[in-house]
């Protein structure tokens, strides 16, 4: 049995050849990485797809109580003009009841206008409006229900409907994305 000191002493100094092996291997790894990168990255959305990333919506034509659907990044976005009752219902919920607790005022910029991505957070189906127990949305695929703040209330979806980045350009116009 060699001791640790013995074995390190008996190990020969790295030779020129060893250094060449490591350097060649490292260069080959970098080269392979460089070749593989475009092959993988080509599958991501390209710049022309990403450039379509914002949409403007005119709110003047949406009466209270109506939900409109606009297309943003190929996905539907729900813009809901909430009535006073709906706002009250959304604000009055005890956060302890929610699977993904979030107060209503953290999900809207103006209480009358709810803007959410209309894609169920379970597996991507499109929920139907003003249906389900909480009168928000109901997903026909696997039965998730959302409330009038787009928050998940029951079913397999793990989280609330996503609130996209948006800004009020004027009182009646928003820009999504």
């Amino acid at each position: 049995m060699n001791t640790k000191a013995d074995s390190s002493e008996s190990r020969p100094e790295p030779s020129r050849r060893d250094i060449l092996y490591v350097a060649t291997g490292a260069a080959a790894a970098v080269a392979v990485g460089g070749v593989v990168w475009p092959l993988i990255a080509q599958m991501n959305p390209d710049a022309s797809t990403r450039a379509l990333a914002s949409t403007e919506v005119d709110l003047a034509a949406v009466p209270a109580g109506q939900i409109i659907t606009v297309k943003w990044r190929g996905k539907p976005v729900f813009v809901r003009h909430r009535t006073a009752d709906e706002i009250k219902a959304a604000e009055g919920v005890d956060l302890k009841e929610l699977p993904d607790p979030q107060p209503d005022n953290a999900r809207v910029k103006k209480p009358e206008w709810l803007v959410v991505v209309g894609v169920c957070t379970h597996l991507g189906c499109i929920p139907t409006g003003k249906e389900g127990e909480f009168n928000g949305w109901f997903c026909p695929c696997h039965g998730s229900t959302y409330d009038v703040s787009g928050r998940i209330r029951s079913g397999p979806a793990p989280s609330n409907l996503e609130v996209p980045d948006y800004a009020f350009l004027t009182d009646t116009k928003i820009k999504i994305g």
Binding site: I40, M43, N44, P45, T49, R73, G74, K75, V119, G124
Partner: peptide, 11 residues
């Protein structure tokens, strides 16, 4: 990455 877009599309 799988979709090549933010939703199922041409890509």
């Amino acid at each position: 990455w799988l979709l090549g877009d933010y939703a199922v599309g041409n890509a």
